[in-house]
Design a protein around this nucleic acid. Structure first.
Lengths: 161, 161
DNA sequence: GCCAAGTCGTTGCGCATGCAACCAGAAGTG
DNA sequence: CACTTCTGGTTGCATGCGCAACGACTTGGC
């Protein structure tokens, strides 16, 4: 069985493998399940939901395209088209920026606010049922501090909330 | 400030938010960083790496397309094209299946084995540096059991390995 | 043996995304 | 003010993916 190029790398222990692959698979499963749930119940994709949510939580329900893009971890071009789609659905609108004539705000419409309010219930229930409820409060706290360490190390600098 | 449709949903606590968003951001940051690292050092994408790795660890360095697809969480069509690319690079080859004339194996070539061996060192170093090393062994163990719970709940049934 | 139903891998198509190039406008420099 | 440099948003293009449909084959029921 041993061939000429046997693996020289020190492999992972079973425990390490479980922690690492588990995260990859858990993330994939959660993203898929939550997206499907949101799509089925409200016809919204997860990325659209994120846009609406951050807008709803922002001052005056609006954010600069640029800030929005970096917040939801999307390229500027990606956000342009995502906002296009949401605007076509009437969930948000583009508003010119008085302070900076280059810029534009994405602003939630009343319809967008409604859709989000409904979707938020579904989504948060899902996140709780499939993730949060499976941890004790102490474990959640531990997770939080751990992610901060990871983010500090792996880039993305600091996460804004 | 309070408009007609105020948010009725019970929102997440700060601790919950940190644990949940932290995971999303940590995953995104890790995937991006590890992919870039692998691409820079060995010209391999993370998805290609996964294919090579699972093949290398498999009996006779080959797997059925179907099994491979579900293992790396890709659709069958997605795998077809990914294998196309890797075959074009000479890292693996398609082998007919004697037991089932419909089926095909993807099998690692010696070149693929070499590329993987080199890439594996880089990748595992990265995973350790950006993830595993940031946890104590006890925390890793806890994470592992937690992911199992998540996977059981959120679908994907059981994870193989 | 024969036919229906299921499975495996491939292909056409549509979609969401990133990159690079672009323009308009802002900001810094002389 | 004039000029360069930078930034914000949009666009063309390429990529990688999933879905649905297909043909080839296997499996199960009779």
């Amino acid at each position: 069985m041993a061939t000429s190029t046997d693996i020289p790398a020190r492999l992972l222990t079973a425990s390490e493998l479980r922690a690492w692959r588990g995260m990859l698979r858990a993330h994939a499963a959660l993203a898929k399940a939550l997206d499907a749930q949101l799509e089925a119940a409200h016809g919204l994709q997860l990325s659209s939901y994120e846009v609406l949510m951050y807008l709803a939580d922002a001052e005056d329900q609006r954010m600069r395209m640029c800030d929005l893009a970096s917040t939801i971890l999307l390229s500027r071009s990606g956000l342009t088209r995502l906002v296009d789609r949401l605007q076509r659905e009437g969930l948000l609108e583009r508003v010119a920026c008085a302070q900076d004539a280059r810029g534009a705000f994405a602003k939630l419409t009343p319809l967008g606010r409604e859709r989000l309010a409904a979707a938020r219930v579904t989504h948060l229930d899902g996140v709780r049922a499939m993730f949060l409820d499976l941890f004790t409060p102490e474990e959640l706290e531990l997770l939080g501090t751990s992610w901060d360490r990871v983010l500090e190390t792996a880039g993305l600098g600091c996460c804004r909330t």
